[in-house]
């Protein structure tokens, strides 16, 4: 079920604060965040976030199309190199 509109989008407070600080400083540096569950808001456009995937912070350059989705969508948590058997079959 979708989230109630009256609550507004969910964003962890520290993400907002960090974004604000970096916007004011004007420097274009990666903002490290762990909050994959936060919604991407219009005021984040143009900033670069380092979204944690459980191992590393993946740099995500926020564009207009991303608004309304969550940060986690842009930082995949699984690595998949394919099956060993498939590779063997291809070599032959």
């Amino acid at each position: 079920m979708a989230r109630s509109v009256w609550k507004g989008p969910f964003v962890d407070a520290y993400v907002l604060k960090k974004a604000e600080v970096s916007r004011e400083s004007g420097r274009n540096e990666v903002i490290k965040i762990w909050s994959r569950r936060s919604t991407i808001l219009p005021q984040f456009v143009g900033l670069t976030f380092g979204v944690y995937n459980g191992k590393k912070h993946i740099p995500v350059n926020v564009t207009e199309d991303m608004i309304g989705q969550k940060f986690g969508e842009y930082s995949p948590t699984r690595t998949y190199y394919g099956h060993a058997a498939d590779k063997k079959a291809k070599r032959k």
């Binding site: 564009t63 199309d65 991303m66 989705q69 986690g72 969508e73 842009y74 995949p76």
Partner: peptide, 11 residues
């Protein structure tokens, strides 16, 4: 659009 965006659905 989804594929160019690099989001999970696109992947």
């Amino acid at each position: 659009r989804l594929m160019d965006l690099g989001c999970y659905r696109g992947l």
